[in-house]
Amino acid sequence: MDKATRPYIICHMVPSVDGRIVTKGWKLPGSGLAEYESTAQTFRADAWIIGRVSMEPYAGKTRIPARKTREPIPRTDFIAKHDADSYAIALDPSGKLTWKSGSIDEEHVITVLTEKVSDDYLAFLQSKGVSYLFGGKTELNLERVVQKLRKDFGIKKLLLEGGGKINGSFLAADLIDELSLLFAPVADGSIGTPSLFDAKEGKGPARQLKLFSMEKRKGDMLWVRYKVKRG
């Protein structure tokens, strides 16, 4: 895919030295989160994207009312009225997030769905001022999604901050341009917990990387940046 038709995508994460990303139990100091946020801000990204489970605390909980009308809602993208210049994006194929509003800290919310979501849910999103994009009929086509983000919202730089499966899906689709890894001074040692990239069982979609930056940060953290090699 021509990169001019999609955002430049940076996967920014805090893994352990053995590549695990579930931080519960690591006992990281508050400075660890501060380092993550401060390094993320240096990218001056237009948007950040995560999955449904990670987005739930931001979305909140509310009731989805049943519509009074039976008129079907077309499966076309919806761009809510907003004046934001940065975006919070959720991958929510089945439409399970119950948004309290269409913004998170002044960032406009975009949710990415499949066409199998209900009309009640689409009407709910419209009422909350949440923009939505369709990424496929029953499964998300990430190439299509990121092209829409560039075309419809002008997003040129996107931070990917997902779980192992989402990051792995972007890796498999060859949509990651850069890795930004803020290694925590922790050896996790667990088996079966998510790692940076969990694309599929067996042999994965290996990508060659080129190191271009390495910097010691507070709290014995190490910030390492790679470009993904192509061609």
Results as ranks from 00 to 15, higher is better:
192 G>K: 12
192 G>H: 14
170 F>L: 06
166 I>D: 03
160 L>I: 02
197 F>H: 01
186 V>R: 05
209 L>Q: 00
182 L>G: 08
194 P>V: 04
179 L>T: 05
164 G>P: 07
184 A>V: 14
157 K>N: 07
203 K>N: 15
187 A>K: 07
186 V>C: 04
210 K>R: 08
159 L>I: 13
189 G>P: 04
181 L>W: 09
180 S>R: 07
159 L>S: 05
195 S>I: 11
177 D>Q: 09
164 G>I: 05
160 L>E: 01
158 L>Y: 01
209 L>G: 00
162 G>D: 08
208 Q>S: 15
172 A>N: 12
194 P>Y: 09
157 K>L: 03
163 G>M: 12
171 L>R: 08
149 L>G: 06
194 P>R: 05
151 K>F: 06
151 K>A: 14
187 A>M: 14
198 D>H: 09
153 F>D: 02
165 K>P: 00
163 G>T: 11
209 L>F: 08
201 E>G: 14
150 R>E: 10
186 V>I: 14
153 F>P: 00
167 N>Y: 00
206 A>C: 11
167 N>K: 03
184 A>R: 10
180 S>Q: 13
174 D>Y: 01
165 K>Y: 02
192 G>I: 12
191 I>W: 13
204 G>H: 09
153 F>W: 11
159 L>C: 05
173 A>P: 07
210 K>H: 07
151 K>N: 08
181 L>K: 09
163 G>Y: 12
174 D>A: 10
166 I>N: 00
172 A>F: 04
150 R>P: 09
155 I>H: 03
156 K>F: 03
151 K>P: 04
175 L>Y: 02
211 L>T: 00
181 L>C: 10
202 G>Q: 12
199 A>H: 10
150 R>F: 09
210 K>T: 04
196 L>H: 08
183 F>C: 00
171 L>I: 13
206 A>F: 13
195 S>C: 06
182 L>C: 09
161 E>D: 15
184 A>E: 11
192 G>W: 10
204 G>I: 08
150 R>K: 15
201 E>S: 15
202 G>T: 14
168 G>R: 07
150 R>H: 14
173 A>S: 13
192 G>R: 11
153 F>L: 08
152 D>Y: 13
154 G>E: 13
167 N>Q: 06
196 L>V: 13
179 L>I: 05
212 F>P: 07
206 A>V: 14
169 S>P: 02
168 G>E: 07
172 A>I: 02
158 L>R: 00
186 V>S: 09
200 K>P: 04
177 D>V: 11
149 L>Q: 07
169 S>E: 06
159 L>E: 06
151 K>E: 11
154 G>Q: 13
188 D>Q: 04
172 A>Y: 01
190 S>P: 07
162 G>T: 09
195 S>V: 12
182 L>E: 05
177 D>Y: 09
169 S>L: 06
164 G>R: 06
174 D>G: 04
184 A>F: 12
208 Q>N: 11
160 L>R: 02
199 A>E: 13
196 L>A: 08
161 E>N: 15
167 N>S: 03
188 D>I: 04
196 L>K: 09
191 I>L: 12
152 D>H: 12
151 K>Y: 05
164 G>C: 11
180 S>N: 14
180 S>H: 10
